[in-house]
Structures are given as C-alpha cells and as structure tokens.
Write a protein that binds this DNA or RNA. Structure first.
Lengths: 189, 189
DNA sequence: GAGACATATTAGACTTATCCTATATAAGAT
DNA sequence: ATCTTATATAGGATAAGTCTAATATGTCTC
C-alpha cells in the first residue's frame, strides 16, 4: 500500500510517466523501497480509477507515446492525510533472521562462514550508501528543494545507522564465535 | 518463502500442529517474522506436497483432532541447504521511510508530532524486548538447548541493536527540528 | 549492417500474503 | 443461560509482488 503513496509523493513533486517513476524510484528510494516495474503500471491504473491521478497522453514522433500522470486535488489530500497518519508498520519479515534463528543445525565452521558472508554484504551496502548522494545530484533534479532534501537525507541517515548497527552485530557475533563461544549440544558430533 | 523454512526449522526441533506452530512462532520469532495463521496451514499443505513434511493424525476425544507434522529426511536436507545458502535478502519495503521521504509536504508542527510518535513507538518496542526471554522460558521449552538458545539470543540482539539505532535516529532528527533546522521553501506559507 | 543498448508501455501467469469468516468442541466465567 | 476464551482447521476473496516477455522505435558501436 505504501507504493501508492510513494508514487503519489513523486507525482506531487512533478508529473511522471510509469517509466520515469521506475527510474526515479530506483535512484532515490531504492534503499528502502524497491518497486517492480509492472507493479508501478498496475498501481498507476488503480490510482487513476480512484481519481487520485489523471493521465495525459503525450505524443512522440520518434518514440512510443508517453502516458504522463498528474496528481489530482483528491490525490493531494489523500497524500497529506496518509503522511500525517500513523506509520505503516505492516508485517515484519526478515529472511536473514530466520536463517540465524535455526543456524544451530549447521557446523561451527559453516556458521562462521555464513556470518563472514553477512558482514561482507553489509560492508558493501555501506559503501554503496556513499555513492547515493552523487547519483541523485545527476539524475533526480526535481526533488532538490532544501526542504525536500532534508527528509531525503533523513532516510539515508536511517539506512546508514541501521546498516552500521547490523554490521556491528555481525562483527560482535563473529568475535564470540572465534572465541569458541558457540555452545555444543551433546548429540552434536 | 522464508516462512517455509521457519516452519521446517521448528519441525526439525519437534513435531507440531498448525495451531502449535502459530503459538510457537508468535512467541519466539515475532520480532522478525509475523505469521498469518491461515498462511501457516497453507504452507504446511505445500510442504506436504513437496515431501518435506509428513502429516500424522492424532485423534482427540475432547477436542478436534490434531494434524501433527513431522519433518522428512528430504525436508531436513532442504533446510540444511537453505541455512548454508545466501541470506534471503528479498525486497526492501519500509513504509515508515516512505512517509519520512515525502514529509516535507506537512507543516513543521505536524512533522515534529510525527517524529515524536515514532520515538514513542520505538521506545515501547524496546521495552517489549525485555519481556521476550521470560515468555520463551514459559511457553517454548523445545528450543532450549544451549546451542539453539545462542542463536535465538543473536536474533534478539540484532533486533535490539536495530531498534536502538532507529531510536537514536528519531531523537537526533527531533533535536535538529527543535533547533529550527528544517529548511523552509519559498512557496511555503 | 548486425547486434547491443536505451526508450517506453503493457500483459499474462504465477506466487505469496492478508483479511475475513466458517466450522466444531469444551472449559470456565458471570 | 450466555458469553468469552481456548483448541483446531480451513476456505474464499482480495491484494500485492515477481518473472517473463511481447511490442515498438531509435541510436550507437563494432
């Protein structure tokens, strides 16, 4: 459901086509929302039915025609109401944590290898965060007002802090493991 | 897809019915996986079709009959393979971050109120984490081997660290806002 | 001039998840 | 007596997300 409002949010900045939205979403909010291209088109159709957006056909001679979507005043109100409402917490689903929870079934060596893999992924994600600001400078020029920028930076900061906490967690776990602190069950060979 | 392995993981500890699994999941892994009851039954049916679990009918005179599920050797291998494979990162979806990203459309007062709401929720989640260990002591006695416990505690530690990082983020944001650091756009009234 | 790549939209099949509800039984409370 | 809670399973409807690929055109490179 938040995809509806992510799209409304962008259309509130500027009119976009489905194709534009995919690019803009990928560049700006990828760190907390990944949008499937075909889901974007379906959502646009739904938002049109709901009267939250209007479609404008823009003919192009050299390329396929674009369908550019504009937010309506109904859509604008709906966005504001959602923004000031409770956070959409939804359902918690962390696949990696499921893996960790049942990891006792693996050998100590395999477990250590898994955690080093985790730490490696987390470090590379942290490295990617450094590049996001520049990418936005180049591609995503409609959300550049200082006020909008402030909140975009807040989401980036949240991602950074969370990922740093995750990495510290993985490193602390590895340290414990290397100190031989994984308990061994009796039936374990 | 991780629900499949969460269920396999528990059946690897002990045979359970769908009803048991719902309770066990709610008590132990709720902080990173919330399972819909009817989804559990559907998943058990799917796992049975796949040959990963077997169903055993247990007749009861006073109550409806139980269908107790046992993991098969095929299921056991599948679990081990999944556990030693790459972390199921899946798709990133954070509704709250969508809210923050587009929050510039609200007034400064509403924004501050939203963030204080966030911080409040985060504090109460942190308080709930303290109660989880006791609940597990009481209800969830099959996952009590020291080795299994070690990994259960690791998932708890991850949740704690993440939530603490989130709270620090919200508090830092509130501080900035109170210091009048939210930029104001020209067209803003 | 062949092939790769970028632009631009959309459909179809499939999987997964969520919500609500129905069914049945019995214990315990008010 | 009735209401709630607990035990136990499951179906229908809807929503949401994923994967794949079809359609159409222009540019750029080798």
């Amino acid at each position: 459901m938040s995809l509806d409002y992510a799209i409304l949010g962008f259309l509130n900045y500027h009119p976009y086509s489905g194709y534009d939205l995919k690019k803009v979403l990928d560049v700006s909010v990828r760190h907390f929302w990944n949008a499937d291209q075909s889901q974007i088109y379906r959502t646009l159709a739904r938002l049109t039915d709901a009267g939250y957006v209007n479609m404008e056909m823009v003919e192009q001679s050299q390329r396929p025609d674009r369908k550019v979507y504009h937010i309506t005043s109904t859509g604008h109100s709906a966005l504001l109401q959602w923004l000031s409402g409770p956070p959409p917490l939804g359902s918690t689903h962390s696949g990696p944590m499921v893996q960790v929870f049942f990891m006792s079934a693996l050998s100590d060596a395999e477990i250590l290898r898994q955690f080093e893999g985790y730490a490696h992924i987390m470090r590379s994600v942290l490295a990617q965060y450094d590049q996001v600001p520049q990418q936005v400078e180049n591609v995503y020029q409609d959300v550049q007002s200082p006020r909008e920028r402030f909140f975009w930076l807040l989401t980036l900061d949240s991602g950074l802090r969370t990922m740093r906490a995750n990495l510290e967690w993985a490193e602390a776990a590895i340290k414990k493991m290397k100190a031989g602190q994984i308990p061994v069950d009796k039936e374990q060979k």
